[in-house]
Design a protein around this nucleic acid. Sequence first.
DNA 1: TTGAAAGCGCTAACAG
DNA 2: CTGTTAGCGCTTTCAA
Lengths: 341, 341
Amino acid sequence: MLKVTLKKIAATLGVSTATVSKALKDYPDISEKTKKKVKSLAASLNYKPNSFAQSLRNQESKIIGLIIPTIVHHFFSNIIYGVIDSASEHGYLVITLQSNESYEDEKNKINLLIEKNVDGILLSLSDKTVNYKHINRLIDDGVPVVLYDKISRSVNCSKVIINDFAAAFNATQYLIDTGCKKIAHIRGPLKPQTTIDRFMGYKKALEVNNILFDDSLVYVSDSLSFENGYNIAPKIINDHTDVDAIFSFTDLVATGVLIRFKELGILVPEQISIIGFSNWFLSKITSPTLSTVDQPGYEMGRKAFTLLYNELNQIRNGEPIKHEIVEIATKVIPRNSTKPI
Amino acid sequence: MLKVTLKKIAATLGVSTATVSKALKDYPDISEKTKKKVKSLAASLNYKPNSFAQSLRNQESKIIGLIIPTIVHHFFSNIIYGVIDSASEHGYLVITLQSNESYEDEKNKINLLIEKNVDGILLSLSDKTVNYKHINRLIDDGVPVVLYDKISRSVNCSKVIINDFAAAFNATQYLIDTGCKKIAHIRGPLKPQTTIDRFMGYKKALEVNNILFDDSLVYVSDSLSFENGYNIAPKIINDHTDVDAIFSFTDLVATGVLIRFKELGILVPEQISIIGFSNWFLSKITSPTLSTVDQPGYEMGRKAFTLLYNELNQIRNGEPIKHEIVEIATKVIPRNSTKPI
DNA sequence: TTGAAAGCGCTAACAG
DNA sequence: CTGTTAGCGCTTTCAA
């Protein structure tokens, strides 16, 4: 493909590159006649501005970076989808990278993105990240960052979150409303704020309903996996013969519990109710179907990009940057792994 | 962030930018002493070359484009993951875009990528794409393209595929081996080569086993959705009371059938066996678990990038471009929706 | 209404 | 061994 440049157009038309550039951009100081001439030639030659040259001049790439802990994951897929969709609408493209829930990877991937001069970064903290220097440095350097889902209160930037505390409270309250009295909780990795908040919400619901919190009813799943649920299930019923409900921090683990219970001949929800979290697609498929809390990934992705976009515009206009924290609504989705109210 | 440029380093060191550039790149014609000086200053200043300037000079972006029909999709998620993983290892970043199974979107997204000067494109054809001019033009323009999964025989480029014909043949043969005699097929959209080949594989297996092919046993699901399976299921048993097996072109649709059968009180696999395709995660979760054909997305993604990378190197070295067609192995995964052999 | 010229940051041929 | 210089393609200020 012999490339069409401003220079070439200018040459064939016998005008300057400056004129061509301005004509193409509808500058008011170019005559209509020239504009028409330039535009029609550009169109017929299928002229495409060289994005490197533009970026070099304008100091912006119109590309943003998206760091995802795990790509193959129903919730995060929806995030990716939402981000890409929203970005496209505003003329931005998205480079996606995976942190593998690793602090080192997270740092490295951020660097790759910075080296490519992305205009901003969307980031969900890895489960292992406890130190936020790498992110604060970014922000200090003027790179807009928006944290989504797994965030840290101690980073000062825009964020898109759900109210994990309230969502977990509601899920637990729902179990109580269906008559459950001894509710176990499978919590996630200890560090992320999301799993801490879900745990706190669970605890609060017990308290409000005058149910004594029992530490031994809390089980930790160090990762998001089906197997973890599968393995924790028998422990729960061995430790507590009278457990009548389980609130799991995520659907995948809840599904593992469900399947194991079926193998063990434990009836769900007759003997034990189960409620998950996230409303993964698979929660509609299990048998019984899994009650859960809807966590709208697509919408979170869209919103995360929007916040970044706003900051990008503020920067472009020389306005002060306003960080915004947006909370996306969640709701309990009753299905058949819990009893009717 | 006040940016560190070659110029700045050169100025503080009292040398020329050329020297700095070469020193940083270990050119043999720079003295060790100078190299050391330059490198240590660069490191302490945290110098990062400006990628726009580099790209402008070198005419390469080290970014590739990936077009996916549907992002939120277990198989395609794995493709994305494989591509990104493999690309990272070779210093490439990936811009992902979704075609929504739409021909128009596919064309538009390709254009966006070209305008960003990506070094190459990985593409899975949308279900609606029947015209390949947009892709052939790309190839003629010298943009390396690798087709994966949904390909067209009439585009001359590298491809990563599975042998859909053989895979479908094996799936059907497996049903026959378990004693099934009247096997329905739910086929996918009519245009993609993948679903055509799966249909042909199904037909061939019947033929080889002397089972008469019956056109009325073939049902079309125009999209990949749970609902389609759910709706087709009752039709099948109404049309043919003696059907004893179903081969579905994809797990999601098979799952819809499975769930509907359960609601209708039809025993799987006792009355009707079901085998799906792709080995989605959810096929391990259904009840009974779903027999299927494993289609390794991660590996396909990796391979697709590798092929692109090879072509990129061939171009860089001025070698002739060799197109390669790679077939990834699949295998039947027996689970509990089919009878034991 | 148009154009000349500078410069974004980097690389590489060539000269010294 | 080091520096000069030109140029990748575009934008924008300033002068004409």
